[in-house]
Simulated assay, not measured.
Amino acid sequence: MSAVTERRERERAQRHQLIITAARELAEAEGWEAVTTRRLAERVEYSQPVLYSHFDGKDAIMRAVAVEGFGELAARLRNARLAAPEQPAQALHAVCRAYLEFATERPALYQAMFILPTDVKFAHAETPAPLRAGFDEFVSCFRSDNRRRELFAEVTWSALHGIAALTASGRIPPSGQAERLDLLVTQIAGTPVGR
C-alpha cells in the first residue's frame, strides 16, 4: 500500500469518526430529532455528499453511534465487574449499577443503543462484537456451573433496561433506584447484597 493510499484511508477514518462524534454531541445537546445529515454536514464542515460517502443516512449514523456506545458500555461493565469482590452477587450488583449509571449519564447514546429503531441485531449470529462483550459481562457474574447463566443474564439485562427506560421517562422516580437494584440482584443472585 502506498503512502498516499494510507494517508487517504487514515483521513477517511478520521472523517468517519468525526461524523459519529458530531452526531453524538448534537444528540446529547438537542436530542436525536436535531440530528440531520444537513446539520451534521454543517457541523463537520463537509458537504452532504461527503457525509453520504461514509453513511447511507441518519439510520446508518445512529447504528454507528450505537455500536460505539456498546463498546463503551462493555468496557464500563467489565471495569465494574473486575473492581468488585469475587462473590457473584457483588459482581452482579456492580455491573448492574454501572449499567444504570451509563444509561443516566448518556441518555442520547442509550436511546441510540436501546430505544430508537436500528438494524442492530441482539442475540443473533450478526450481533456486533461490542454488544456481545457487554452481554458477556453479565454472563460472567453468574457461576460457570449454572447452565442457564445466559438466561439469567438476559433477564437481568431486560429488567435493568426497564428500570432505565422507566426512570428516564419519569414514570418511576430515580430516588428508588438503589432499592430496585438491590431487589433485582437479591432475587436473581439468590443472596442479599449490601450497598
Score class of each variant (00 low, 15 high):
A22E: 10
A60T: 00
A159S: 11
A13Y: 04
E28Q: 15
P174T: 12
S140M: 09
V185Y: 04
V193H: 11
E33F: 04
A178R: 11
T127S: 12
G31R: 13
R180M: 15
V193P: 05
P85K: 02
A60H: 10
G162I: 04
R132T: 14
L181T: 08
G69M: 01
L184C: 02
G69N: 03
P107F: 08
R180Y: 14
V35Q: 10
Q177I: 14
L184H: 05
A83T: 00
T127C: 13
E137N: 03
D136P: 05
V67M: 01
P107I: 10
R63M: 00
H124Q: 01
T5E: 14
K121S: 12
R15K: 05
E11T: 07
R43D: 06
S158L: 08
P85Q: 02
L166E: 13
E28H: 09
E72R: 14
P174C: 05
A64Y: 08
E105F: 06
K58C: 03
E30F: 07
A168Q: 15
L166S: 13
L160A: 03
Q90G: 11
P130R: 05
R10V: 05
V4F: 02
P88T: 05
E72Y: 05
R63D: 05
T118P: 01
T156A: 13
F142P: 01
G134T: 03
R15Q: 09
R106I: 02
E72I: 01
V35N: 09
A123L: 13
L116W: 05
F70R: 00
C96P: 02
V185M: 05
R78Y: 04
F70Y: 14
R132P: 00
R63F: 07
K58D: 06
L77F: 06
H16N: 15
L131Q: 11
P107C: 10
A27P: 09
P107N: 11
H54Q: 13
A41E: 02
V95N: 04
L131W: 07
S140I: 00
P88M: 04
N79E: 09
L131S: 08
L82M: 04
W157N: 02
S2M: 06
Q111M: 09
F122G: 03
P192F: 06
R38V: 14
T5C: 00
V185T: 07
R148D: 07
K121Y: 06
F152M: 07
A75F: 00
R149H: 06
T118Y: 07
I115E: 11
G71A: 05
S169N: 13
F102L: 09
E45T: 08
N146I: 04
L184V: 11
D56N: 09
L92V: 01
P128G: 08
I61Q: 03
I61N: 02
P117K: 10
E6D: 12
D59A: 15
I115T: 14
L40P: 04
V185A: 01
T21R: 15
P49R: 04
G31D: 12
R195G: 13
G190A: 11
R106N: 15
T118Q: 04
V65L: 10
L116K: 08
L18H: 09
G190N: 07
E30A: 15
A29L: 14
